[in-house]
Nucleic acid binder design. Structure first.
Lengths: 217, 217
DNA sequence: CTCTCAATTGAGAGTTACTGTCATCAACCT
DNA sequence: AGGTTGATGACAGTAACTCTCAATTGAGAG
């Protein structure tokens, strides 16, 4: 559910490959506001807990009106859940050689993506994952989000296998992958997620390994 | 998330195997009220849609106060989502011979359970599934519920494999299974779920087959 | 049968997440 | 500078809950 890069600039002539050229004052202000809201929210969630933090308070401390908060994030949950990872994973998956078997391709694509996401903002990423894990409402919405990721994944796999994208086997494969990876992620959080990046990659390897071995124990 | 069989009678002496003996006037009224609310709600959801049906209206047409509705179902979503399937599946899984490999055991357990659930109230079951599929809020909560089912499944598999119930491989296996099965169920609904029971069983077979074959396509 | 106790219920007030409208104000374009 | 457009804030409204308290009703004792 990426924010779809708020309209305007670039993309008209040859793709210059430098979108962060100078997004116009307006755009910059929007980004600032968005960041202010999210940062304030994360801080308050940390201090008081998610449920105990009303949107009005977030608005007040972020120096915007409640209306504005809802303009930027349709729901309170979205403040935590909105991300731009999906296109990243999708791209990484497309970059894999066509011959590669699906599970292997996904594994490699994930390695690349995880590293990137993690580097972008490690602290906030961890905070996010912890929140998602601990707040039921967020966990619920998250798995909804996963369903969309599954769909995207399916389309990518459909392309590389030449199957229809509503193919049953394909659906099952992506469903299983997502299920396994989600579980692996939660397991990672349970371990205290201290080792961070390496551990997470190792978990992904083990998870996909189990799948490849036909779920034998 | 079974309602835990509302307290009182039976179970004190030898288990007489007839719990529906005579649950006392009070208990019977409670069951009636619960049914009235749920039935009314399902009817209204059918007529007007889930989102367009306020709890107050359900209360009014079910001849109870709004407070009472919330006493019986903590959230509006629970009116649709509350079920008692989990213990059923758990039992069916425990009834399988200990030597059987996990995936096969689950398959057989599911066959038995699906048949039972379906026979209990086919119409309402279909209505439920359709609602869960179509209303985002319900889908989200449902996957939350699945997480609990996964945990239960994990405990059962932990027992029969002698592994710890927080074993990583075990988590991954159950996660993958649930993911695959959920996807299969949605696929079933997508096909118009006309063939109903047989089709569903066939889908389960195919889903678990894919898992056993290591997600090869 | 009645009296007491505990559980169930309904009424009402309050909180919070959202939605929609409208006037204001600031950035963009000419 | 001046008109247009997009962002913002104030406000009113809805609906899902939550809490509290008083009235009712079934359960069990005498």
């Amino acid at each position: 559910m990426a924010p779809a890069r708020t309209g305007s600039a670039g993309d008209t002539a040859a793709d210059t490959d430098l979108p962060p050229a100078k997004p116009s004052l307006r755009e910059r202000k929007k980004i600032q506001t968005r960041q202010a809201i999210r940062r304030t929210a994360y801080r308050l969630f940390e201090e008081q807990g998610y449920d105990a933090t009303p949107v009005d308070q977030i608005a007040e401390e972020a120096e915007v009106s409640p209306s504005t908060v809802f303009r930027y994030f349709p729901t309170k949950e979205d403040i935590v859940l909105t991300d731009e990872y999906d296109p990243l994973i999708e791209q990484a998956l497309r970059d894999r050689p066509p011959g590669e078997p699906p599970v292997a391709a996904l594994r490699e694509a994930l390695y690349a993506s995880i590293a990137r996401i993690y580097q972008a903002d490690a602290v906030e990423t961890l905070q996010r994952i912890r929140l998602i894990r601990e707040v039921p409402a967020l966990r619920a919405r998250m798995s909804e989000h996963s369903a969309e990721t599954a769909w995207l994944l399916r389309r990518a796999l459909a392309e590389r296998t030449g199957r229809a994208d509503d193919d049953l086997e394909l659906r099952i494969v992506t469903g299983a992958m997502l299920g396994a990876l989600t579980e692996a992620m939660y397991a990672w959080v349970d371990t205290g997620m201290s080792g961070t990046l390496e551990d997470l990659s190792a978990l992904v390897t083990r998870a996909l390994g189990v799948l490849e071995r036909g779920l034998t124990l």
